[in-house]
């Protein structure tokens, strides 16, 4: 059993009686590390915070000196620009809207995403922090392949290549450690990642890819347009 927690150890049994801690499997093991050296918040932390804050303002100010915030023509309800784009952080959703019916892309998927994010700590998905292939490799492999397969087929049917490709790549990277015998450092590390880590990583990659496509690669009629092409 790998150590999720570590009982306090002291080689001097005479000085410290041995203790055994019983921890129920379903609670997180929060074990105090050896006492570290503490430093005063003032000035150590506060100065660092001040530096970080000022550095950030400097970057922002320089950005603001050289790049003006966009201001287009006055609003004209009569003329819809082509394409009409939402702010960039919604363009992932808008890109989904291109593939799925509005109810799926505009409501169900974002709601699911937010709910999933909220329930993460309650589902204890990541409690064990156990690598995916460390136990019950066969069962997990079938499960992963089945879910990835169904998802891929669905995405393929809807022609959502923007999600299909990241999904396939993540799935491939995910199962690689399960098959490769001689594992280097990277593969070992990948192999030790738990399921929740994979799901989150997949989610982040998909969000980033969709947002990037929606922001940079979409032109009139939401068609594929290279970013260096003038739209208007």
């Amino acid at each position: 059993m790998s150590a999720d927690f570590r009982a306090e150890k002291n080689p001097d049994a005479g000085a410290v009686p041995k203790r055994v801690a019983f921890i129920k499997g379903r609670t997180a093991a929060r074990v105090r590390k050896e006492d570290e050296d503490l430093v005063m918040t003032v000035p150590h932390l506060v100065v660092r915070e001040a530096i970080a804050f000022m550095a950030m303002v400097i970057v922002l100010a320089l950005l603001s000196l050289f790049f003006n915030a966009p201001l287009e023509w006055i609003a004209n309800p009569e003329h819809t620009p082509n394409p009409a784009k939402a702010p960039w952080y919604f363009l992932g959703l808008q890109e989904l809207l291109h593939y799925f019916p509005p109810i799926v892309a505009g409501v169900i998927l974002p709601a699911l995403a937010v709910i999933a994010l909220i329930v993460i700590p309650y589902f204890r998905v990541n409690v064990k922090r156990e690598g995916l292939w460390e136990s019950s490799r066969r069962r997990n492999l079938i499960g992963v392949c089945a879910v990835a397969g169904i998802l891929s087929v669905l995405l393929f049917l809807y022609n959502v290549y923007a999600m299909l490709i990241p999904t396939l790549i993540v799935a491939a990277v995910m199962v690689t450690p399960a098959f490769v015998r001689r594992q280097g450092r990277i593969l070992l590390w990948l192999g030790s990642r738990p399921l929740s880590w994979w799901i989150m990583t997949w989610f982040v990659i998909v969000v980033v890819v969709l947002t990037a496509i929606g922001t940079l690669f979409r032109g009139p009629e939401w068609s594929w347009t290279w970013p260096w092409k003038e739209i208007y």
Partner: peptide, 18 residues
């Protein structure tokens, strides 16, 4: 750390003055 703080603080003021 002190040196960084000093430099950043000066830069901060300069940029805001620009």
């Amino acid at each position: 750390l002190r040196a960084t703080f000093a430099i950043v603080a000066v830069l901060f003021l300069v940029v805001l003055a620009v």
